[in-house]
């Protein structure tokens, strides 16, 4: 049930988040209050190492980045599944070992496929 449990051991994390937020927003607020504000067109221009900016700031990404990101997410999730397995491995025994081997073998098929399809090649 929601609202019946209080993770008291995470209080330092909450304090950390609150202090970080207060520091970040506080610094910005103090900056807004105290800095002189005299804008002119050159000052408002995006800074590009002293060169006048040209073209769109956004450019299309190569689709290769997407493949890399997708493969990263898949193997990220695989690693996440291995983590609790490693914790309880000695409690469950050979059964858990075999099922994890099956799990990794299935994903190994995908890995070999990606390799053969040259998804790791950057040209």
């Amino acid at each position: 049930m929601p609202g019946t449990y209080l993770p008291t051991e995470y209080l330092p994390v909450l304090i950390f988040i609150l202090v970080a937020e207060a520091f970040g927003f506080g610094a910005l607020l103090i900056g807004v209050v105290f800095r002189p504000k005299k804008p002119y067109p050159e000052k408002l221009m995006p800074y590009e190492s002293g060169i006048n900016p040209k073209g769109e700031p956004r450019t299309r990404f190569a689709i290769r980045f997407y493949i890399i990101a997708m493969l990263f997410v898949v193997f990220d999730v695989e690693a996440i599944f291995i983590y609790p397995w490693a914790i309880v491995f000695d409690k469950i025994g050979i059964f858990a070992f075999i099922e994890m081997v099956i799990f990794i073998l299935i994903l190994l098929i995908g890995y070999i496929y990606a390799w053969k399809k040259e998804a790791f090649v950057w040209d």
Partner: peptide
């Protein structure tokens, strides 16, 4: 996960 990987590629 396998389907996601192969589909993306």
């Amino acid at each position: 996960l396998l389907v996601a990987m192969i589909g993306a590629i």
